[in-house]
Computed example of a mutant assay.
Amino acid sequence: MSWLHVERADTPLILAFPHGGTEIPEEYLPAFRSRDLALLDTDWHIRRLYDGLVDATFVWTDISRSVVDCNRDPSGVSLYPGQATTGLCPTETFDGVPLYNEGTAPDVEARRLAYHQPYHAALANEIERLRARHSRVVLYDCHSIRGVVPRLFDGELPELNVGTDNGTTCDIALSDAVIAECGPRWSVLNGRFRGGWTTRHYGQPESGVHAIQMETAMRAYLDESPLAEGRAPAWDDGRAAGLRTDLARILAAVLDFAKGRP
């Protein structure tokens, strides 16, 4: 499984990246209307954004979310009933544009078994490994999205969107610490994004496993304008530097919580 990566650390913190991949297996490509369209909703440069900020275990996939979304309920149940969203194997973009050529559709079960299941087996294994060494473990799920997607939300998204499924996936002390360290950035707790399946599935604070999602508006670290033309945005060192400083501070607070420090 060359598409699945785990970089281990011994601290009680895991960073997960389910949507940063851009690989589409060759056998799937003919069914997509275009590769660029299939990659439009990628969490662009998300792992680079977090690289080197904290001593933690990193788990990520190289497979595009348009092949399979590793942050969706494998049963197909919607995370946001009544609101627009995409499924386990998306058939349209966030904007509602069809991803597949007419008459084609993904084999959802085959992709679940090939990609979703191994990804979560790896996450579960790391949680078990670290939980055996620490009384608390935090799973921090890393995401980013265009700041304006009218089909998904009104207006402009805050820069930092923290999700804990309305306080059920972690101790309030953790979410309070994260929000406090967001500083002057426009941030919100449990707004449009309350945490995906990863956060909701693994977050069991009563058992010592705390999960939290950070959804970042991409404008906080890159120029989103190429996406309007269907092109991949470039990494922006200047814009990302300030956000990386803020994220390092946030992650330090998360690690302090995981280690039981005040």
Score class of each variant (00 low, 15 high):
157 L>S: 00
93 T>L: 02
232 A>T: 14
47 R>F: 07
46 I>C: 08
103 G>L: 08
155 G>W: 07
178 V>Q: 05
43 D>G: 01
225 S>W: 11
105 A>D: 11
243 L>E: 07
165 D>N: 13
130 L>D: 06
106 P>A: 15
179 I>E: 06
198 T>E: 10
67 V>W: 03
183 G>V: 14
27 E>F: 09
78 S>M: 13
8 R>H: 15
245 T>E: 14
17 F>Y: 15
190 N>P: 03
93 T>W: 02
82 G>S: 04
170 C>S: 10
112 R>V: 05
190 N>V: 06
56 A>K: 08
137 V>S: 06
54 V>R: 06
37 L>N: 03
100 Y>K: 12
43 D>W: 05
123 L>N: 04
150 P>M: 00
156 E>P: 05
125 N>A: 13
124 A>L: 12
199 T>V: 15
164 T>R: 00
236 D>Q: 07
155 G>E: 04
179 I>K: 02
35 R>P: 02
172 I>H: 11
150 P>L: 07
227 L>H: 06
242 G>K: 14
238 G>S: 10
55 D>I: 11
6 V>H: 07
161 N>L: 06
14 I>E: 01
122 A>R: 12
135 S>V: 12
65 R>Y: 01
193 F>D: 01
208 G>C: 04
206 E>D: 15
97 V>R: 10
164 T>L: 08
258 A>R: 08
255 L>F: 00
80 Y>G: 00
170 C>D: 04
56 A>R: 01
142 C>K: 07
86 T>V: 15
134 H>R: 11
251 L>T: 12
167 G>R: 05
70 C>L: 14
81 P>F: 06
190 N>Q: 02
31 A>I: 11
260 G>K: 10
98 P>T: 07
168 T>D: 10
262 P>H: 15
169 T>L: 04
180 A>P: 00
95 D>S: 12
160 L>H: 06
241 A>L: 13
90 P>Y: 03
61 T>I: 06
131 R>Q: 12
233 P>M: 02
4 L>Q: 14
222 L>D: 03
126 E>Y: 11
